[in-house]
Design a protein around this nucleic acid. Structure first.
Lengths: 172, 172
DNA sequence: TTATCATATATGACAAGTCCTATATTTGCA
DNA sequence: TGCAAATATAGGACTTGTCATATATGATAA
């Protein structure tokens, strides 16, 4: 769905090969949009077919690679999508299914699940905090927005940890 | 992935038809596991094929319907899954992609997106608060857990609203 | 009595994503 | 020089989920 637009977003800044795109995504939006390599190439092909992206084979360089450029139509599509107000899409949380049916396995086992998850959340929190510390609090719009996406992840894990503690307390 | 287990969870409490299952899910786990009707029927068929669920056609009732029961193997599979500690699975947030590339449309348009989302979050928050108020704070394990899954949703929207306000502030 | 709604199940077409595998080149290191 | 790792692209098989549609019956209200 939005992989198309994520790709257009990256290409709006600079032309990239599929390989570069993957690296760029892994390094920046991975925590809210993990991208599969095969899916990137397929989506890229689709964008080209739709006229939103142009390809240019480059072999004058060290390697032959396919540089992808956003076309004018691609940029228009991107900006259109960016400005559109889409309703919040539902997300699936397998973990909550476990909580919901946790009565079957008993409070002790449920607490073990919660504690394991808390551990993971703490690692994530530390990671986010580390990265957030490296981004200045104010700056140009792009900097503020990039920091905001990171803080979003941070706020969510923080809320998760709080919720886990609250739940652990209620289970005692 | 977990729809199988969600279904087994419901059937572990009481036999249900596909139709009843859908209603039960809509009324309880919808906010963390929205289930498509077609998907429910197909998964049910799959569970039967796998020997985790038994079907019994009932027509002595007002209508002919297919009652589904969890088998012993089904319950074993469910409890196994419930006890297994799975790593946190990544979620996709199209909205954060918009934030990430929001530089293209400018601060004013980005704020509009944030405000629209804030509105939706507030509605959700009120809904969750209303339901949470109807569940006693303490009780048996099942009650505590059901309340916990609800509070999870509430904590997340609360965090979201806080994050939006924080971001709006940073954008000024 | 007729229309409409809720009940009840099911299929087809499709989209998005995952996992695995294949292939070829090129760079760097030992 | 030879081998491993990184670069670079791509297809097949599959799973999960969505959307639209088909079909049939029982209940209820106009």
């Amino acid at each position: 769905m939005s992989l198309r637009h994520a790709i257009l977003g990256f290409l709006s800044a600079t032309p990239l090969s599929g390989y570069d795109l993957r690296k760029a995504m892994d390094a920046s939006v991975q925590h809210f949009w993990p991208a599969d390599q095969a899916q990137i190439y397929r989506t890229l092909a689709r964008l080209v077919a739709d006229g939103l992206v142009d390809v240019q084979e480059v072999d004058g360089d060290t390697r032959q690679r396919k540089l992808h450029f956003a076309t004018a139509a691609g940029l228009a599509e991107l900006d259109d999508w960016l400005r559109t107000i889409h309703p919040v899409e539902a997300s699936r949380e397998p973990f909550l299914i476990k909580m919901f049916f946790g009565g079957r396995i008993g409070a002790a086992d449920v607490c073990a699940l919660l504690l394991a998850r808390r551990g993971e959340a703490e690692v994530l929190r530390a990671t986010f905090q580390g990265i957030a510390a490296s981004i200045p609090e104010s700056g140009d719009l792009n900097t503020v927005l990039r920091r905001a996406t990171l803080l979003s992840g941070l706020r969510y894990v923080e809320a998760e940890i709080l919720w886990i503690d609250e739940t652990l307390e209620a289970l005692k």
